[in-house]
């Protein structure tokens, strides 16, 4: 029998034979690959509860593994290792070690919401992906992903001034993630923009990158949001056993 979703089985758990005789019958060709028997004892049954406590993860318990999420997934079409159904399975079974192997993939969810559209059980898989990526960071399994760095840069600008400005976000993100501004595509893009944009507008954009545009009277709203965000960050950290405080978001930074 062929093994479906064979790519999910790690190579070291597969046993392959060119010539195989079982009980005197030559089964070469038909039965060349076997999954090795193994016993898993290191369950962490707390994972589902911890991820459910983070925003987006609330409805993971509804999943009945139909696979509509993975089937519709934008990122899965580029990389079959990106598999929301499988991760939800691992979380619900408590296979922490297996989940952690994909620690640097989960954050790549692009939030297109095709999974949420397709899901017959309202699991909101897009939210589960975000909660799982957040959990992996809070648990200390991985460092803050570029996506988290971007979210934090963007959000702290909104919390401070009420608005964002494209150039300021780009500069802030490149600084945070230690990337160079001199990327070939960016140079071409900026040259083309300079050609087309009126001088007044370019001056205005440069001006806003230096002197941040803000929503008038934003102070009290910004302060209330920051206070609430801090409370939530503490709540999220407390929900994850052994959580790492350095993975929390500080809106003032």
């Amino acid at each position: 029998m062929p093994i479906h979703e064979k790519h999910l089985i790690r190579p070291e758990n597969l046993s392959t034979h060119d010539n195989l005789v079982i009980d005197g019958v030559d089964v070469s060709g038909d039965w060349s690959t076997f999954i090795k028997a193994r016993v898993v004892t290191d369950y962490n049954e707390q994972i589902e509860e911890e991820i459910s406590a983070l925003p987006g993860g609330e409805f993971i318990h509804r999943c009945w593994q139909c696979g509509s999420c993975t089937n519709s997934c934008t990122v899965n079409a580029l990389n079959s290792d990106f598999n929301p159904r499988y991760w939800i399975y691992l979380i619900r079974m408590g296979f922490e070690a297996e989940l952690v192997r994909d620690k640097d993939l989960v954050w790549q969810c692009v939030s297109c919401n095709k999974c949420t559209y397709a899901c017959p059980r309202d699991v909101f898989p897009e939210g589960v992906m975000k909660a799982t990526a957040h959990w992996l960071e809070l648990k200390g399994h991985t460092v803050k992903s570029p996506s988290t760095q971007f979210d934090e840069e963007f959000s702290s600008q909104v919390f401070r001034t009420g608005k964002i400005e494209d150039g300021r976000v780009l500069l802030g993100f490149f600084r945070r993630s230690g990337q160079s501004l001199f990327q070939p595509w960016l140079v071409v893009m900026i040259k083309k923009m300079i050609r087309g944009l009126p001088l007044v507008w370019l001056t205005k954009m440069g001006w806003s990158a230096l002197f941040h545009p803000r929503t008038r009277g934003w102070g009290p709203a910004g302060a209330a949001i920051q206070e609430y965000a801090r409370e939530q960050e503490h709540k999220h950290l407390a929900a994850v056993r052994g959580g790492h405080p350095e993975a929390m978001f500080d809106p003032a930074k």
Binding site: G56, S111, D151, V158, I164, R216, Q232
Partner: peptide, 25 residues
């Protein structure tokens, strides 16, 4: 008048209810 950012794709990943507030304002 005097509008603010809706929260875009980013604020919900910090906390979805902050995004709800931003849009509600």
């Amino acid at each position: 008048k005097n509008w603010n950012c809706c929260g875009a794709m980013e604020v919900k990943n910090i906390d979805p209810k902050i995004q709800t507030y931003l849009s509600s304002r």
